[in-house]
Design a protein around this nucleic acid. Structure first.
Lengths: 175, 175
DNA sequence: GGCCAACCGGAGCGTGGCCTTCACCTTAAT
DNA sequence: ATTAAGGTGAAGGCCACGCTCCGGTTGGCC
């Protein structure tokens, strides 16, 4: 593969991720192309169609997140700290957008599996934190993961958002 | 006006509000018509175009909310209780959707003014609660109103949502 | 009951945006 | 210099949505 081709392929992926995170899942191919400083045709040279581009971005992002989360998980820090760090990593990622907004039947099986793994890891972590006594115990693991999804994986979210801060404080166990 | 016409007009308004709250601001005229058990033509008999229907729904909703909020505000309850009750009333209303999602220039001036009034009232209430010592003081009134908007006025939100509960707990002042 | 105007229905038109293609041009690599 | 891989963006095709319109229906009134 030619050097410029590889550069452009990565440029497309990172630009698409950025736009998806900032403007939501409805970004058009032309928007991505313009933001990357390329023509639309170039996008189709690298990805057979729009869905493939989205799936590729989602898979890469999820794999990175999963690896980082596993590393974080095997640390000896309190589970609460681990959870906070993972949440910080997740903020702004278009995870919920990719996993739930397009009807769940059409998603790439690889992506679906990765989403499942991330959710399972998060759920386990939440329940561990509850056993540790640092996270409020009046919600199920699935509920916590669900509310993190809608609060944290929304377009434009940032790790130092007031919403993220307040939400994490609200998840802390009460004395 | 004939009796069935008035019934249908109200049916359209309530159905549209319900769908906007549950499915977001992109609901089509045909979706609203189907959900109301009517034809599309009937919608256009009562509202000249889609925007008018949305504006009408928004104005009615905002007026109701504003009246209820003012009543609540003049009660003698702690400001925190007042705020919680108003938030409960707001959950699920497509307020942010109507006020911010369509570019702010095209909104009906009446709606824009009502949104402004609601936001001002909320901001004042938040600041009063901060002075009262019941609401955390490390955020500006505008920030709190902003996060309430995205958290509470999202499609599918409910007053007993885990997210709403956790968020309110996170807004409580710490001992 | 009978009349009429108001009302309802939903197929269909026009439009705009979006994905995708393709014929031609550019450029990296040898 | 050569050549094949890569890039371009205007044009095509498609689809969903807003909106219209006319034939059928229904409520109000004498």
């Amino acid at each position: 593969m030619r050097a410029d081709a590889q550069r452009n392929r990565e440029l497309i992926a990172t630009t698409a991720l950025d736009l998806l995170a900032r403007r939501g899942p409805a970004v058009s191919m032309e928007e991505i192309a313009r933001a990357a400083g390329l023509g639309v045709g170039t996008l189709y040279r690298h990805f057979p169609d729009r869905q493939s581009l989205l799936d590729s971005v989602a898979a890469t992002t999820l794999r990175t997140l999963l690896a980082a989360s596993r590393a974080e998980q095997s640390s000896s820090s309190p589970r609460w700290q681990v959870l906070v760090r993972i949440v910080a990593r997740c903020t702004g990622l278009p995870l919920a957008l990719i996993s739930s907004l397009p009807d769940a039947t059409r998603v790439d099986p690889t992506v679906a599996e990765l989403v499942e793994e991330v959710n399972a890891l998060l759920k386990g972590l939440v329940e561990d934190a509850q056993r540790e006594g640092s996270l409020r115990a009046d919600l199920t693991g699935a509920q916590v993961v669900g509310l993190l999804n809608v609060a944290v994986c929304r377009p434009g979210a940032r790790a130092d958002d007031p919403l993220t801060t307040v939400l994490l404080d609200g998840l802390r166990a009460r004395p």
